[in-house]
Amino acid sequence: MIVVNKISKKYGKVLAVDNVSLQAQPGKITVLLGPNGAGKSTTIKSIAGLLNFDGDIYVNDYKNISVEAKRSFGYVSEVPMLYDALTVKEHLRFVLKSYKKEEDLEKIESLLKQFNLADHQDKLAKELSKGMSQKLSFLCALIIEPQALLVDEPLLGLDPQAIEQMLQTLVELKNNGVSILLSTHIIDMIQDFYDEAYIMDQGKIVTHIIKEEDTLPLKTIFFEQVGKIL
């Protein structure tokens, strides 16, 4: 479970995230929506411990920057950040070992097959297309079998088939009890998949939507609240 309690983040004089609180429950897909510059990515990066911030964040009851918390969550960045000279397979081996897990080659093979990357496993990261890089970045987060998953704009650069596949995987993870927090621009794609949503604007949470309680489509609520084109 991810608990964010009154976090704020400034870049110089600009307040990017202003007193934000939210929760991502186990077995649920929680979505962060908002226009450009709303503070979605900054919030996710703060939870992942990549940025410093004011406030408290807990992942599975541990402070997000603790070793215990880090062991339990995976993070998928908006832009895949891979090592140009490492192959697809080496990336996964690297992540497993850095998390002090066994290099389970069968698990690696199976994940690669599932995401149609098996034929590319010996390709260097610099030889991958944008979509394949994004998939690999996603797999690097999945391979550690996280209890919580932070996904920043996961659908950018993916073809429709890959988007479908990624969303199905997120649903599978959700069904296995993983807490999922993802930020996205593509509201239509997640309408059927989300459980809870937070709409952000100008660094603040403006609405918290629980799908079971709100009958209006997410898009309608979004435009009502933000009144801006995504």
């Binding site: 140009d84 070992k97 850095s98």
Partner: peptide, 30 residues
């Protein structure tokens, strides 16, 4: 990455150390 951009990279196998040291293993492999 810059130094490797136009370079033909050799195929090498490498082992990754456990924990933080995996970063160093990755550096050596590169």
């Amino acid at each position: 990455d810059l130094a490797m951009m136009n370079k033909k990279l050799k195929s090498k196998q490498g082992k990754f150390s456990s924990g933080a040291l995996a970063i160093w293993s990755s550096y050596v492999l590169q």
